[in-house]
Computed example of a mutant assay.
Amino acid sequence: MTQPSRSSIFTLAVLGAITGLLSGLFGIGGGVVLVPMLVMFLGFQQRLAAGTSVAAILPAAVVGGIGYGVQGNVDWIAAIALAAGVIVGAQIGSYLLSRVPTGFLRWLFMGFLAVVVVSLWFVVPQRDAEIEKTVLVIVLLVVTGLVTGVLSGLLGVGGGVVVVPVLMFFFGASDLIAKGTSLIMLIPGSISGTIGNSRRRNVDLRAAAVLGIAASVLSPLGSVIATHIPPFWSNVAFSLLLAFVLGQMLFKTLKKNKNS
């Protein structure tokens, strides 16, 4: 793998900073934004961009997660339950990737995103809301992580875009707890995914290091800004990001169907 040029290092640093800010602000991995930017601005192949993104988000998830944790906005039990499901689900998704037609699943997921985008404008969680701890809730959290991991493996979407709205709407978490818990959940997923991608040579570790360092610088800032944004406007901003993700997926799907 060739040594990155100074211009590409600068571009990577800028993209990493943007990813880190989004990660801290919304509790997502940022891959839904970073992957297309790596392809567009630096000419990465899709698989290499996805693998590099998974590795790059690790420092930002750690730093951003700690930022939310220090502020008391992480549900550690929920994060562990989700992580347990995500680790297994990601392996299942990767296994099924070349074996299962994903067309219907992709449309189903886009429908889910569309519902969430609309709901975020009308359903506003309370800042002091917490996840109720029962055996059933823990089991459902593991299942949520499992489904999230499968979707991530099959569709290449980050876990945060699924987990954050699900924690708010179905488990009664506040927006801040949902974001902080999501970031903690991403840590083991990033480690597991990077190990697998390294074996398949689907990751540029030099680029990931630059992206990750830049992302980790701005991730705490994103988590601090999130606490100062009212829940409604936080929902509005998150809905716009999800609308971008939805539009991106819709464009790729229609383009693929047109060329096939």
Rank of each mutant, 00 (worst) to 15 (best):
V54A: 06
P220H: 07
G51C: 07
T194L: 14
L151Y: 10
V116C: 02
L96D: 04
L82S: 01
T148K: 07
L254I: 10
A208H: 09
L183H: 01
G153R: 08
L120C: 09
A129S: 15
L48F: 01
E130K: 13
A243L: 15
G29Y: 09
V54G: 01
D128C: 02
L155K: 05
I229V: 13
K255E: 15
S239N: 08
D204N: 14
A84I: 14
V164A: 05
K258I: 09
S192T: 08
G156S: 11
R206V: 13
N257A: 15
L21H: 02
E130I: 03
V163R: 01
K258D: 15
T194K: 09
P101K: 05
R6F: 13
M110E: 08
F232W: 13
S8I: 00
R99K: 14
L221M: 11
L136F: 00
F10L: 13
Q91W: 08
G24N: 08
Y68S: 02
F232S: 09
E130V: 11
V39L: 10
G196Q: 11
V142P: 09
Q248M: 15
T227G: 11
G111A: 07
V143P: 00
L42A: 08
V32A: 15
A78R: 01
T2C: 00
R199K: 15
K133P: 00
G159T: 11
A237Q: 06
R47Q: 14
G89V: 04
F169K: 04
A84Q: 07
Q71Y: 10
L140F: 12
S260V: 01
K179W: 02
I138D: 00
L205G: 06
N257H: 12
G172Y: 02
Q248F: 12
F251P: 00
L42Y: 12
P36N: 10
F238W: 04
S98F: 06
I131H: 03
S174C: 04
L176V: 04
V39H: 08
L183E: 05
W233M: 07
V245L: 13
L254D: 10
V142W: 05
V115D: 07
S152A: 14
M40Q: 12
G43D: 11
R206A: 15
I195E: 08
D204A: 12
L205N: 00
I225N: 05
A207I: 00
S98M: 04
A215F: 04
A214L: 04
P231F: 03
P36M: 12
I80G: 13
H228Y: 10
V35Y: 05
I187S: 07
